[in-house]
């Protein structure tokens, strides 16, 4: 009979655990943000979150994916608010009625990274299109995000500007986030387009160096977009508005402008929205 007791006890313990797993009450207002990996991987998201969640009224549920996937979440009404960096797609997104009040508020830039040895002799190219042409001419390895993210879209624009179509023998499509793609480029000693902020946050683990930077084409603009509550009645519109207002406020501006100076030795994101 002792064994029956053990079995019953075990069952009871497991049942209790199951209940404990489910009993956690949902916070009052969960705001679902669809954003890009660069915002998470640099730590900016966490830094902002501390302040945003401080009063206990909101919990931010940030899904960090590529901008393409973030907008896909917006198209099905899964996200309350978007923080993305793919201007052409954003405009289309708003035109199609999925989002409202698109506000461009932040920028930094993209850089071309490559191995120190620079087999394609890209260093010194002022125009990023020239850099890409040299990479293609030398058939040097290039790793693409290939995930419809803002960075990927920018890369495709640069190939367009360079008027080259990369051949698959030297063009690797990673299908991963920025960090994963950078790791592949690092191991393969390949060239890669990266946002400066993710590069800096990973620089201590990378041997890749910046081989081209500063072209106007490489500006990286981030925008906030609210999900259209008229189209998606289930979105948390007040919560999304609260996050929107918070990011476009003075405390957030000050936090963003200071962000990275201590840890990476330079400012990672440049705030260009005129806060009231």
């Amino acid at each position: 009979m002792k064994n029956t007791n053990v079995m019953a006890l075990l069952n009871a313990a497991l049942a209790a655990l199951l209940l404990a797993g489910c009993a956690k009450t949902e916070p009052k207002s969960v705001v679902r943000l669809a954003t890009t990996t660069s915002v998470r991987d640099t730590g900016l998201l966490d830094a902002l979150n501390e302040t945003f969640q401080a009063d206990g009224r909101y919990t931010l549920q940030a899904i960090a994916v590529g901008s393409g996937q973030a907008m896909q979440l917006g198209r099905t009404g899964e996200a309350d608010i978007l923080w993305v960096h793919s201007p052409d797609d954003e405009k289309k997104f708003v035109e199609e009625g999925y989002g409202v009040e698109r506000t461009t508020f932040l920028h930094n830039d993209f850089v071309i990274l490559g191995p120190e040895a620079d087999p394609a002799k890209v260093k010194g190219s002022k125009k990023v299109a020239d850099a890409f042409r040299k990479i293609a001419a030398a058939k040097a390895l290039f790793v693409s995000r290939a995930d419809q993210s803002g960075t990927h879209k920018k890369e495709l624009k640069v190939w367009d500007a360079a008027k080259v179509k990369p051949a698959k023998e030297y063009y690797l499509e990673a299908g991963q986030g920025m960090a994963g793609t950078l790791s592949i480029a690092e191991e393969k000693k390949a060239y890669v387009l990266a946002d400066r902020s993710t590069y800096l946050s990973m620089a201590k683990n990378l041997k890749l160096v910046i081989v081209s930077e500063g072209d106007d084409l490489l500006i990286n603009r981030y925008s906030l977009i609210l999900a259209n509550p008229a189209k998606f009645p289930k979105v948390n519109a007040p919560g999304a508005r609260a996050y929107f207002d918070f990011v476009l406020s003075r405390p957030a501006k000050e936090l963003i402008e200071k962000f990275g100076v201590e840890k990476y030795g330079q400012q990672l994101f440049f705030y260009d929205y005129a806060v009231k």
Binding site: D41, Q176, G177, A179, G180, L182, S183, E186, S201, M202, N205, L206
Partner: peptide
Amino acid sequence: VMETQMGNF
């Protein structure tokens, strides 16, 4: 997975 991709071995 995430830390490996970030190179934080």
